[in-house]
Amino acid sequence: MISEHDQKLATLILEHSTEVQKDQNVMVQLIGLNGINLLRALVEQIRAKAAHPFIQIEDAESQRILVEQGNETFWKNQAKVDQLPKMKQMDAFIGIRASENIYETSQAGKEANKAYSEHFLKPVHFDERVNNTNWCIMRYPSPAFAMNAKMPTRAFTEFYYKACLVDYGKLEEAMKPLEKRLRATDEIHLKGEGTDIKFSVKGQNWVPCFGKRNVPDGELFTSPVLDSINGVISYAPSVYQGKPFEFVKLEVENGVVVDFDSSNNDALKDILDTDEGARRFGEFSFGLNPVIESPMYDILFDEKIYGSNHLTLGKDYEVAPNGNSSNIHWDLVCIGADVYLDGELVRKGRKFVADDLKGLNPEELL
């Protein structure tokens, strides 16, 4: 039986996020079987709109085998024969990440991950899906997901839907004063425990996010001027390529990572050595979802934590470019640093202190 929450989430995704219209082609991808009821709600509502759902259900463990054993030839063929031609015909893409184990691909080696990223993810998703479809990506709640969040399953499920179904119209309006300030800003300075880093965003585009591409949502992003970044930054726990990191700390000179420390330095070195752009940064963002308070080892939630910022290693987005090209895009999150815009303190810790920005604090949005 499809729950009322899943029906509401499906409606949000189709009407607000992807704006599906009659006769459009919509790919609905489910990785892991846990989110089957959301998929069913989506399919039902897509057909009610007289649009055309294309269902893709993937078993997480089978996908692990492919990632571990795949090589350049295999992924080029997968992209060429199946996924890329199909994606080129889609008007919208909805991705439900419902795997029970976020560490499923943690044993895939450096070369296997590189082949998958370069010859499948990049052409199919980064180049085609991101740039040419209305797309939305989300996770789906499970006991394993709740465990990573250190919450009881029932409490986590309630939190999940509350975070996903925030009032995005209200959040969009509250972002506008910050967007206005940022478009006039040259230098951003983050300063906090283990973090003291400065960079320029002069002339860069800013993109407000309020439920159009991710659910849950709530961020305002750009890309830093590529060679302007200098200092040190410390990040919250993260998982990338199925590998857990309890902390990551980077030292940056003129936009390039020159030193690093983490709870898993061998894996971090492999990621940074992916290509030249992997040691540079392609995105900077403010996390603004008023419901999400702490990291849960899932970047679609963690990058939206209120009072956070992410300074992202790897590829930029075409909508807010800075010229960095890479086969990785790792949204590492820094929580609670003071934020200065051209020397003015606008956020102290996790709360905005500038009068025109206080509307973004959680007590004003909930």
Rank of each mutant, 00 (worst) to 15 (best):
I2Y: 03
Q7K: 15
E15Y: 05
H16A: 01
S17N: 09
T18F: 04
T18L: 06
Q21W: 09
I31N: 07
I36Y: 07
N37M: 11
L38Q: 07
L39E: 15
A41E: 07
K49D: 12
A50Q: 15
E58S: 03
S62M: 13
R64Y: 08
L66M: 12
E68Y: 08
E68T: 14
F74D: 10
F74T: 12
W75S: 03
V81N: 03
K86F: 03
K88E: 14
F93E: 10
I96W: 01
R97L: 13
A98L: 04
S99K: 11
N101A: 02
Y103L: 15
T105F: 08
T105S: 11
S106F: 13
Q107K: 15
Q107A: 14
A108R: 14
E111Q: 13
A115R: 03
E118C: 07
V124I: 05
H125C: 08
H125S: 01
R129Y: 00
N132A: 11
N134D: 11
C136H: 07
R139P: 01
P141N: 06
P143I: 04
M151Q: 15
M151R: 15
E158H: 14
Y160A: 07
Y161R: 01
K162A: 15
C164R: 03
L165G: 05
Y168P: 09
L171S: 10
E172H: 09
E173V: 13
E179M: 14
R181W: 14
R181Q: 13
L182P: 08
T185L: 03
T195W: 10
K198I: 13
K198M: 14
F199I: 10
C209P: 00
V215D: 08
P216W: 01
E219H: 11
E219T: 06
T222Y: 04
L226F: 14
I229Q: 05
V232L: 09
A236P: 07
P244G: 00
D259R: 12
S262Q: 06
N264W: 04
D270G: 08
D270W: 05
D270V: 02
A278N: 03
R280M: 14
E283R: 00
V291Q: 13
I292P: 01
E293M: 06
S294F: 10
Y297E: 11
L300Q: 02
E303F: 09
E303N: 05
K304G: 08
Y306P: 00
S308T: 10
S308W: 06
N309R: 06
T312F: 05
G314T: 07
Y317A: 11
E318S: 14
A320L: 09
G323Y: 05
S325T: 12
N327M: 10
H329F: 09
H329L: 06
C334P: 01
A337R: 01
Y340S: 04
R347Y: 09
R347P: 01
K348Q: 15
G349H: 05
F352D: 02
V353F: 03
A354W: 06
G359P: 13
P362V: 11
